[in-house]
Amino acid sequence: LVRYRTISKIPQITLNFVDLKGDPFLASPTSDREIIAPKIKERTHNVTEKVTQVLSLGADVLPEYKLQAPRIHRWTILHYSPFKAVWDWLILLLVIYTAVFTPYSAAFLLKETEEGPPATECGYACQPLAVVDLIVDIMFIVDILINFRTTYVNANEEVVSHPGRIAVHYFKGWFLIDMVAAIPFDLLIFGSGSEELIGLLKTARLLRLVRVARKLDRYSEYGAAVLFLLMCTFALIAHWLACIWYAIGNMEQPHMDSRIGWLHNLGDQIGKPYNSSGLGGPSIKDKYVTALYFTFSSLTSVGFGNVSPNTNSEKIFSICVMLIGSLMYASIFGNVSAIIQRLYSGTARYHTQMLRVREFIRFHQIPNPLRQRLEEYFQHAWSYTNGIDMNAVLKGFPECLQADICLHLNRSLLQHCKPFRGATKGCLRALAMKFKTTHAPPGDTLVHAGDLLTALYFISRGSIEILRGDVVVAILGKNDIFGEPLNLYARPGKSNGDVRALTYCDLHKIHR
Rank of each mutant, 00 (worst) to 15 (best):
R205H: 06
A330Y: 04
H73E: 12
R218T: 08
L327V: 08
D178A: 01
W75C: 04
A247R: 01
T113N: 14
R362S: 03
R218Q: 09
T424Y: 03
R371A: 12
A130Y: 04
H264T: 03
Q253T: 11
P184F: 01
S194Q: 14
L355H: 09
C243G: 01
S220C: 13
R429T: 03
M433E: 01
S383L: 08
R71C: 09
A181N: 01
S331W: 12
W174N: 04
F83Y: 15
I324Q: 01
C400L: 07
P118S: 11
F296N: 01
L109R: 14
L343M: 04
S345N: 10
G164I: 14
A125P: 09
Y222H: 04
F171K: 01
R421A: 09
R259C: 05
Y65P: 05
S313P: 14
E158C: 05
Y274K: 01
F108C: 01
G278P: 01
L241S: 01
N386V: 05
L241G: 01
A69G: 11
A348I: 06
S331G: 08
F296D: 01
I177F: 07
E115K: 13
G396M: 10
S81Q: 03
K215Y: 03
Q372H: 09
V289R: 01
T290Y: 01
S301Y: 01
W89S: 03
P367N: 06
L401W: 01
D268W: 10
I324M: 07
P117Q: 11
E252F: 01
L299G: 01
G249W: 03
P369C: 04
L370M: 04
K395I: 07
Y80E: 04
G173R: 11
L201S: 01
M256T: 14
E252S: 01
L209F: 12
G191Y: 03
D137C: 02
P163Q: 04
A204V: 07
L78N: 09
N154H: 14
F190C: 13
M433I: 09
L292C: 01
A381P: 03
T203P: 01
I189L: 11
V321G: 01
F360P: 02
L197V: 08
Y222A: 10
W245T: 01
Y222D: 08
K418I: 05
V160W: 01
G426S: 05
R259H: 14
V100W: 01
Q253L: 14
Y293Q: 01
I237G: 01
Y384N: 06
Y170D: 01
V321A: 01
E158Y: 04
E376Q: 11
T203H: 03
I144S: 01
I270M: 01
L145M: 15
I138R: 01
I96M: 03
A330R: 08
E114C: 04
